[in-house]
């Protein structure tokens, strides 16, 4: 399969800190590729290198078949980029923002309207409104329309869903899925694990290193242990009791329950008694399927500690 982005051994330092430590990955044509990791993991730095805004210190990076150092002029015509803060002119109207970005990229709104119509139609009723007066979700849609207006071959979205409510985020992911019909490859980053499942493939990234690259289901299923979910009304007490329980190897709160693995995966019924002796009542335990976040926690444990 043709690679849209190919990276090997990419390094970037800022002063004494290593922002990226030998990053290697490949993005296939026409897929949604996600970088999932916390703030400070190096997502933005990596995206700036991909969009030719920064040069790597070491390593190779080919984007759309061009070298990121020498081919930047050609690349800049073919990339659509949406930086972390939606890059809109707050004092220009929705319409003016869109047509400005269209002219800058040497095209018109009309020419590529069918590409953005799905997204833009949501905000078109407000086209005279200043961008600064839009809600988070509408800003996000406008910024996406602006990044798409020149029909880029590669769309790079840096944390497009940060600070936007759950409904808008869900709509946003729907739009990204629809864009696949237009032959656009999408690279997207997010600090939220639950968004990983929306991508075709993801790279888990932490402290400048990629922990794993694969389809999200494959990564999730890579969880190597038997996982149990334990619930009890007094969570704080429950967590403390589980921590000091001898047969247990990991304890992580997970929403309204606690995810637990046992040493050598031996589930021991003695746990009921143990918890009861610790003064915890109404305990329910069930085996559960690991999510991608469980896998991330496991990978973080083996990689970094």
């Amino acid at each position: 399969m043709k690679k849209v982005v190919e990276s090997s051994g990419l390094c970037k330092r800022f002063g004494g800190t290593e922002a990226l430590k030998s990053i290697s990955f490949g993005v296939n044509e026409n897929e949604i590729f996600g970088f999932i990791g916390p703030d400070g993991a190096g997502k933005t730095t990596l995206f700036r290198i991909i969009t030719t805004l920064l040069l790597p210190d070491e390593g190779e990076l080919k984007v759309l078949g061009l070298d990121c150092k020498t081919g930047f002029k050609e690349l800049r015509r073919n990339i659509g980029y949406m930086p972390g803060r939606f890059s809109l002119y707050q004092d220009l109207s929705v319409e003016e923002n869109l047509s400005f970005y269209a002219t800058v990229f040497g095209t018109t709104v009309k020419e590529n309207y069918d590409l953005i119509s799905d997204i833009y139609s949501h905000i078109e009723p407000f086209k005279k409104r200043l961008a600064g007066k839009l809600s988070g979700g509408m800003k996000q849609k406008l910024a996406l329309s602006c990044a798409l207006i020149h029909k880029p071959a590669l769309l790079v979205l840096d944390e497009p869903t940060t600070g936007v409510d759950a409904v808008s985020r869900s709509e946003f992911w729907e739009m990204l899925r629809k864009l696949r019909h237009h032959n656009i490859t999408i690279i997207v980053s997010t600090p939220y694990m639950d968004e990983a499942m929306r991508c075709d493939r993801v790279a888990l990234i932490q402290e400048g290193q990629i922990l794993s690259v694969d389809r999200p289901e494959t990564i999730r299923d890579g969880f190597s242990r038997k996982l149990f979910s334990i619930k009890a009304p007094e969570k704080h007490k429950l967590i403390n009791a589980l921590r000091s329980c001898p047969g247990i190897s990991s304890v992580y709160p997970f929403g309204d329950s606690v995810h637990v693995t046992f040493k050598d995966d031996n589930f021991d019924n003695a746990i009921y008694e143990y918890l009861e002796n610790s003064g915890i009542s109404d305990v329910s335990i069930s085996e559960t399927r690991a999510g991608i976040e469980d896998r991330f926690l496991e990978l973080m444990g083996t990689h970094l500690h």
């Binding site: 990791g37 916390p38 703030d39 993991a41 940060t162 600090p191 694990m193 932490q206 992580y252 709160p253 976040e293 991330f296 926690l297 973080m300």
Partner: peptide, 8 residues
Amino acid sequence: GVDPVTRR
């Protein structure tokens, strides 16, 4: 925006 371990 914090990592999953710190968040827990």
